[in-house]
Amino acid sequence: MILAIASGKGGTGKTTVSVNLARAFDSEIQLLDCDVEEPNDHLFLKGAPTGREIIGIPVPEVDEALCDGCGECGRFCEYHAIVSFGTTPLVFPEMCHGCGGCTMVCPVKAIRETAKPIGAVETRRAGNVTLVQGRLDIGAAMAPPLIHAVKARLRRDLPAILDAPPGTSCPVIATLRGADFVLLVTEPTPFGLHDLTLAVEMVRALGIPFGVVVNRVGLGDDRVHRYCGQRHIPILLEIPDDRRIAEACSRGGLIVEALPEYRGLFRNLVGKTMFRTNPKEA
């Protein structure tokens, strides 16, 4: 079972839901922090680091002795990472998506791929949780290859929670692909609703069953609830707008540990999502 936690809007509580859900799970579970531009699950799940691996993407390197300046590489590249004017091509590694196309189309085999580091995959152990997180290098722009590297650590024999980046763009899609169920975390505000609708369109396009978590219930208005009701989208968890939750989070604490009265909410969510028997209701 792979459960992904996503949201359109940032700051709605993806990490809060992810880490508390992982801790509320009473057996061995994997938590993959796929928000590689700012991984923060480790702030809440303290544990000993168990590994770190540098991840690179393949970028082209041109052998000037072999290149005849035909320009095929530049015509192929959608991202203008390699440009040729009848001379040895210019390479812009920071634009490269690592697809390998230029290497393949070069008629004289003048291009070979070298690895350009973009970040690291770090693992740590925190009680019942194996945390795997990606950490993108400062200045690196290409998150999806690192997210794929994080997901490559996924063990299929254990349940997993994927903490996605915010938004609806490539890094989120890279995270959600292959998930069995998606939880969309939102807040009952106009911004929360606006970005929730974008996220709903995204998961519908991906064809993954989903439900909604409404965080900070009590502030804002009831439009998120009405939206979900009209579209028959299940609201699987409501977290109250409780100052003590914010205080626990600000100290790097877990709700399920600092405020045991909420433990049942997350235990309940485990049951509704990780042990679903009918995944068709969304």
Binding site: Y79, H80, A81, V83, F92, M95
Partner: peptide, 13 residues
């Protein structure tokens, strides 16, 4: 989305 400068330079060339 990105690479506008490179693409514009290619166009001018």
């Amino acid at each position: 989305a990105q690479g506008a400068g490179i693409q514009s330079a290619e166009t001018v060339a």
